[in-house]
Amino acid sequence: MAPLNIINGPKPSPVAINMAILTIISHEPDTFIAAFAGSIIFVVSAIDFAIWARISLFAASMIVGLTCSEFFAQLLSKLSDKLFGLALDVPSGVGAVVGAAAAVRLLMYLSIKPKKAGSVFDRHFRKGEK
């Protein structure tokens, strides 16, 4: 396997660059900063990965934080109401922090293969296969 060369690697397509720019500018600055902070929290806690993997996971975490900020804000509002009886209006920035820090880690947890049982995905989607 050839080593990954980030500097001289394949160049991103103009479509990917435009999508990244639109994703960034379509959100409020506080949501962007919060997703960045959540991504930093995730990358700092992901010390068991190589640097190139951390860079990729940072980008994925940032994208998840930006795109799912409203979902996580609503989820936190509902949880605070159900668990504590507090009717809170959680801002999208808080949802971005939680989404960026937790979503990629949750997906990684679900895809881990324990020694005997397989991953959570394997257990639910491959019931007939052995």
Results as ranks from 00 to 15, higher is better:
Val15Asp: 14
Ala103Thr: 12
Ile47Leu: 11
Ala16Val: 05
Ser111Met: 08
His27Tyr: 06
Lys78Trp: 08
Pro3Cys: 04
Ile21Leu: 11
Ala102Gly: 14
Gly9Phe: 04
Ala2His: 10
Ser26Leu: 02
Ala35Met: 00
Ala16Thr: 09
Ala96His: 02
Ala53Arg: 08
Met1Trp: 09
Leu106Glu: 05
Lys127Asn: 07
Asn18Glu: 15
Phe49Val: 07
Ile7Trp: 11
Phe72Lys: 02
Leu83Cys: 13
Ala34Asp: 01
Gly128Ser: 09
Lys115Ile: 08
Glu70Val: 01
Ala102Gln: 04
Glu28Trp: 00
Pro3Tyr: 07
Pro12Thr: 07
Lys113Ala: 11
Leu76Tyr: 04
Lys78Met: 13
Asp81Tyr: 12
Pro91Gln: 07
Lys115Thr: 10
Leu22Val: 05
Leu88Gln: 04
Gly99Ser: 02
Lys11Glu: 14
Ser111Pro: 03
Gly118Lys: 05
Ile33Thr: 06
Asp48Pro: 00
Asp81Glu: 15
Ala87Met: 05
Gly38Ala: 03
Met19Tyr: 10
Val120Ser: 12
Ile33Phe: 15
Leu66Pro: 00
Ser45Ala: 14
Phe125Asp: 05
Ile47Val: 08
Arg54Val: 03
Glu129Trp: 05
Asn5Pro: 02
Asn18Tyr: 09
Phe42Gln: 09
Ala73Arg: 03
Gly9Pro: 02
Met19Ser: 15
Ser119Thr: 04
Glu129Lys: 05
Ala16Lys: 06
Pro12Arg: 02
Leu107Gly: 13
Lys130Glu: 12
Ala100Trp: 01
Pro12Ala: 07
Met62Glu: 05
Trp52Ile: 06
Leu57Asp: 03
Gly9Gln: 04
Ala100Ile: 01
Phe71Asn: 10
Ile112Arg: 14
Gly38Val: 03
Leu106Cys: 10
Val97Cys: 01
Val44Pro: 03
Ala34His: 02
Leu75Trp: 07
Met62Lys: 00
Phe84His: 10
Ser61Pro: 03
Lys113Ser: 13
Met108Phe: 06
Leu79Ser: 11
Ala59Glu: 02
Phe71His: 09
Arg105Leu: 08
Ala37Trp: 00
Phe36Tyr: 10
Phe36Asn: 01
